[in-house]
């Protein structure tokens, strides 16, 4: 059995206040409070997970949401296996900035194959009353489709809706990314079956 790198690095990006820290904490610690302070600098949480019978340690990086701090990103983005873009479904502004978050990430992390680098989009705060919603599911999915079929989930960190499922997908995609990276890097003699057909689940499970 080949020694696989057992650490996967996931970066969570999005406007300030969309719930990045909350989502992370809901996933890792199964906790929610609406009193998380604004993230200054960066922090990460880790969680041990099993994906396809593999034990992996997922490192989830949480960074400050204000665009001004993006220039620091390069130190944190490097070596990422997956990038999670989060917006607040009750704020169209936070949705509209996804483009720049994605671009910025690709510039700073400069992954080997930007076209196929795995992103996952999370529309958070779906627990808030429906009439406050500003971004429809359709609009979000259209955007995701246009960016190369980015998997999309609608979540609530507060109510723990779809969080587990979303991060399972994130983990799978990150692992796949590692595998492709390994092929690039190690040039294994024996063929490894790449499954381009194993497209990540698309759409919202709610």
């Amino acid at each position: 059995m080949l020694q696989k790198r057992s650490l996967m690095k996931v970066i969570i990006l999005g406007d300030s206040g969309v719930g990045k820290t909350s989502l992370m904490n809901q996933y890792v610690n199964k906790r929610f409070t609406n009193q998380y302070k604004a993230t200054i600098g960066a922090d990460f949480l880790t969680k041990e997970i099993t994906v396809d019978d593999k034990q992996v340690t997922m490192q989830l990086w949480d960074t400050a949401g204000q665009e001004r701090f993006q220039s620091l990103g390069v130190a944190f983005y490097r070596g990422a296996d997956c990038c999670v873009l989060v917006y607040d479904v009750n704020s169209s502004k936070s949705f509209e900035t996804l483009d720049s978050w994605r671009d910025e990430f690709l510039i700073q992390a400069s992954p080997r194959d930007p076209e196929n680098f795995p992103f996952v989009v999370l529309g958070n705060k779906i627990d808030v009353e429906e009439n406050k919603r500003q971004v429809t599911q359709k609009r979000a999915m259209t955007w995701c489709q246009s960016k190369g079929n980015i998997p999309y989930f609608e979540t609530s960190a507060k109510e723990a809706i779809n969080v587990e499922q979303a991060f399972q997908t994130i983990a799978k995609n990150a692992l796949q990314q590692q595998d492709t990276d390994d092929i690039y890097e190690n040039d294994y003699p024996d063929p490894i079956t790449i499954k381009p057909d194993s497209n990540p689940s698309y759409g919202c499970n709610c």
Binding site: S6, L7, K47, E48, T57
Partner: peptide
């Protein structure tokens, strides 16, 4: 020694991963 400590953590069965 990355492999070593990660396997060590696995053996230990620590819930939340800690380096």
């Amino acid at each position: 020694g990355e492999t070593e400590w990660s396997s060590w953590v696995q053996k230990g069965g620590v819930g939340e991963f800690e380096s």
